[in-house]
């Protein structure tokens, strides 16, 4: 479904990604783990068209999307929950959700909003409040809900666990699993390697902009190198 070939990204002199290749099959839940500054966010930004790669190619459903503009990428069915959530802080929760459906013009938007509310009842209570006034966990729920509103085929998540209490993380990942079970393909980027490897099918390990390892998540969890570098063992 998503295929990345020899992707290179630079920020002026800084090389953020070099020769990154990976693929994600339809219906899979994949993670990418890596330390601070490894290049995880850069990769997701490049997929979503927020950043121009220096070289390499990105294919989505066999279409080359490397040079597409971000809004066209979104229209193809790729949604992203960006690092730090990227909520529209001075718009209400409901307005945020509605903006999530910006690319849609069918008449089931209201229905989907109700679905999000039944999954995260607290959001219904706070629907008229500014998204920026919510707690971190509630904000992450809005971010997840907003991404779902586009009915994505592929959902990219940039460190969804960052800064959240474990119980909230559990709730968020529960929602992601439900989504996967409904057929959405999911790509999670995480610093929290244990969490990411526990919930995904396969994983890639990114170090200094290079993929240094990949394989089944359960196997990576047992790998001595991964344990040492990422699981604090």
């Amino acid at each position: 479904m998503l295929k990345i070939e020899k992707l290179c990204c630079n920020y002026k002199q800084i090389i953020a990604l070099s020769d990154v290749s990976l693929h994600i099959n339809r219906g899979e839940m994949i993670s990418l783990i890596g330390a601070n500054g490894a290049g995880k966010t850069t990769l997701l930004r490049a997929i979503s068209g927020l950043q121009n790669p220096k070289s390499g190619n990105i294919y989505f459903e066999n279409k080359n999307i490397t040079k597409l503009e971000s809004h066209d990428v979104a229209k193809l069915g790729i949604a992203q929950i960006p690092e730090g959530r990227g909520l529209f802080s001075i718009l209400s929760v409901e307005e945020n959700l509605r903006l999530g459906a910006y690319i849609r013009d069918d008449n089931e938007i209201e229905l989907d909003i109700e679905k999000i509310y039944s999954q995260f009842p607290i959001l219904k209570e706070k629907s008229k409040e500014y998204a920026g006034t919510l707690s971190g966990g509630q904000q992450q729920m809005v971010a997840v809900g907003r991404a779902l509103m586009s009915r994505p085929k592929l959902l990219l998540l940039d460190e969804p666990s960052m800064g959240l209490a474990p119980i909230i993380v559990e709730e968020i990942f529960e929602a992601i699993k439900i989504l996967r079970d409904s057929g959405t393909t999911i790509f999670i980027v995480e610093q929290n390697a244990f969490l990411a490897l526990s919930v995904t099918d396969r994983a890639y390990v990114l170090e200094n902009g290079r993929i240094v390892m990949s394989g089944n998540s359960v196997e990576l969890l047992e790998d001595e190198g991964v344990k040492e570098a990422y699981l604090g063992a």
Binding site: S48, H71, F88, L91
Partner: peptide
């Protein structure tokens, strides 16, 4: 309006607005 909301969104967080499919 949808366009008005898109303008608000773009003024608050450009990258997030682009991720929503808004043509900046």
């Amino acid at each position: 309006t949808k366009t008005g909301q898109a303008m608000m969104a773009a003024s608050i967080n450009v990258d997030a607005a682009r991720l929503m499919g808004i043509n900046i």
